[in-house]
Computed example of a mutant assay.
Amino acid sequence: MKVPHNRFKAALRAGQQQIGLWCTIPNAGHAEAMALCGYDWLLIDSEHVAMSLETMHTMLQAAAPHPTHCVVRPGSLDLVEIKRLLDIGAQSLLIPMVNTADEARRAVAATRYAPEGLRGFAGISRATHYGLVEGYATRAAEELCVLVQVESVEALSNLEEICAVDGVDGVFIGPADLAASMGYPGQGAHPEVQAAALDAIARIRACGKPAGILTLNPDFLAAAHAAGTGFTAVAVDQDLLLRAARALSAEWKARG
């Protein structure tokens, strides 16, 4: 058995736009349902969500039979957490708050076995199809996708160096934390934040890497997409649910 093909990584390399949905509701059935909605990728988030490793495991299993690819975001650049996410079968990771090239190199190293990296080896895991994948230790990195998240003024000042790190497959802009770093907390769509993000997209593309973003501001999102993002998250599941629920409640209460 071969290492499973990472179609998301292949699509990014081919320059094919990948439209995604942020998945924050920790439930396997929910992940399965979202994987049938036509998105190219789902982001399973554990940075800002009460999401256990066991739940993430079942969400990956539930989504696996369907065309949508799951990208997983750990809580931080933590070697142990990243190792465990890889072992349960995550093949694409979005590493938050990467501010320097050294941190980007550490993110890549967390996904590589020695001597190239720092990942500990487990021979019997979901990642290895429980020992059935031939040569997993030497071939796994070919199908792993490492995305790093730049979301501070410091990260933007180091952007070209971060993009140049071997093994970084894409760079994602986080407008919310970037806004706070720029002095505009809670204003992720502030004009200066938008300008900085759009400039970052151009710089990332100039380095030959795909750029990603998530924003719930439709005009900002459209501008980022037009600027050339390669993996674009267009909504958050809980936001979709809440907006629909609130609109329906208001509609029926207005009837008296």
Results as ranks from 00 to 15, higher is better:
residue 111 T to C: 14
residue 143 E to D: 03
residue 114 A to T: 05
residue 118 L to S: 10
residue 114 A to I: 06
residue 110 A to Q: 05
residue 129 H to P: 00
residue 130 Y to C: 03
residue 145 C to R: 01
residue 126 R to V: 03
residue 119 R to T: 02
residue 130 Y to W: 14
residue 133 V to C: 11
residue 122 A to R: 15
residue 117 G to N: 08
residue 118 L to H: 13
residue 131 G to C: 09
residue 112 R to L: 02
residue 126 R to L: 08
residue 114 A to W: 11
residue 120 G to Q: 06
residue 125 S to W: 05
residue 138 T to Q: 15
residue 124 I to H: 12
residue 131 G to Y: 00
residue 145 C to K: 03
residue 144 L to T: 11
residue 119 R to W: 03
residue 129 H to R: 14
residue 110 A to D: 11
residue 136 Y to P: 09
residue 116 E to N: 15
residue 107 A to G: 08
residue 144 L to C: 01
residue 121 F to Y: 12
residue 140 A to T: 04
residue 130 Y to P: 07
residue 147 L to I: 14
residue 129 H to T: 10
residue 129 H to Y: 07
residue 122 A to D: 06
residue 131 G to R: 00
residue 117 G to K: 06
residue 112 R to K: 08
residue 115 P to A: 04
residue 117 G to F: 01
residue 140 A to F: 09
residue 118 L to P: 05
residue 134 E to G: 00
residue 112 R to T: 11
residue 140 A to Q: 05
residue 147 L to P: 03
residue 129 H to N: 15
residue 129 H to F: 12
residue 109 A to G: 08
residue 122 A to V: 02
residue 144 L to P: 08
residue 147 L to C: 14
residue 138 T to M: 00
residue 141 A to S: 15
residue 135 G to T: 12
residue 122 A to K: 12
residue 108 V to E: 15
residue 143 E to M: 01
residue 133 V to I: 06
residue 124 I to C: 05
residue 133 V to M: 08
residue 131 G to V: 08
residue 129 H to C: 15
residue 111 T to Q: 04
residue 107 A to W: 05
residue 139 R to K: 15
